[in-house]
Design a protein around this nucleic acid. Structure first.
Length: 277
DNA sequence: CTTTACGCCTGACGGC
DNA sequence: TGCCGTCAGGCGTAAA
């Protein structure tokens, strides 16, 4: 479900409610998410310590306390929901964090259980294997056309899959990869290694822009994305190709097509997006 | 090394 | 009404 703009929206919404507060109790109803939740380690490391950082790396959320980090991933269907203490628990609320200072509770709900809640001991979360090999953040200077160009030389996979590979760069999932490629005029199935420096520069700019705009709109709510206050995002109204198969391209009027690339639906305009290198 | 396919899970939807 | 296949915003892993 959530790509970078959605996760960042959740992070920003959560931050004022968590910073400086502590988690007094952890209720784990169902520990078997993508990986077993290390309840013991979390209770020892996380509980009753003021939260110093509400961070994010790629699509991972990080709650930092003295001595370590809780790492959260929302998978495809995960939600974090702020609520009052003693309120109703919903189906698929697998974990509930109880907050200090009467701040209520935070429910981690994840229908499909592709999400994760793990504990990283120590001061630097980046040493964790899930984070160690991640590529640059799209809003950082390291994410550039020159970087994408360099990383893609000799690669034959589709440029869309290249862009979605977290080791190349974090943040773009299936929706925003499609949208960035449309805005850059690049056909999603073109081999990554054949795209020119000039076109990668354009792609880097467009990828950053689309992620930024989505963030300004509070993310994209196609099905069930909600922020920590259960409000939807609005960027779905700005989507140019995603989910628009059979509809007219806003730019040229041709019919938007879809293809399966790497087992994922990919939407593109056959006229605006070329296979030119 | 790179690339591809699968599977983890639940739920919604369309066709029969 | 039920059953079956397909699809869904992610990503680690195994196999080729």
């Amino acid at each position: 479900m959530p790509e970078l703009p959605e996760v960042e929206t959740v992070r920003r919404g959560l931050s004022p409610h968590l910073l400086g507060k502590g988690i007094t109790k952890l209720e784990v109803r169902r520990p078997n998410l993508r990986w077993e939740i290390p309840v013991q380690a979390l209770q020892t490391g996380l509980l009753n310590r003021p939260i110093k950082t509400v961070g994010r790396r790629g699509k991972y959320l990080l709650l930092g306390v003295k001595g370590g980090w809780a790492l959260l991933h929302l998978g495809m269907s995960g939600h974090l929901r702020l609520a009052s203490e003693g309120g109703p628990v919903r189906k698929h609320d697998h974990v509930t964090f109880h907050l200090s200072d009467g701040e209520g509770v935070l429910h981690f709900n994840d229908t499909r259980r592709f999400g994760a809640l793990l504990w990283i001991a120590g001061p630097d979360p980046e040493v964790h294997p899930l984070l160690a090999d991640l590529g640059p953040e799209p809003f950082s200077a390291a994410f550039s056309g020159a970087y994408l160009y360099k990383r893609s030389r000799g690669r034959r996979l589709a440029v869309k899959n290249f862009l979605m590979d977290g080791r190349v760069a974090v943040g773009a999932g299936n929706i925003y990869a499609s949208e960035a490629l449309f805005r850059a005029g690049i056909h999603p199935s073109l081999a990554a290694g054949k795209v020119s420096l000039k076109r990668y520069k354009h792609l880097a700019t467009m990828a950053r822009r689309v992620l930024e705009q989505a963030l300004e709109q509070g993310g994209t709510t196609l099905r069930d994305f909600r922020n920590s206050e259960e409000k939807p995002g609005y960027f779905q109204h700005a989507l140019k190709v995603y989910g628009r198969e059979g509809e007219a391209c806003y730019q040229c009027g041709s019919t938007i097509e879809s293809l399966r690339i790497g087992q994922r639906s990919s939407f593109y305009c056959p006229v605006c997006q070329t296979k030119r290198t």
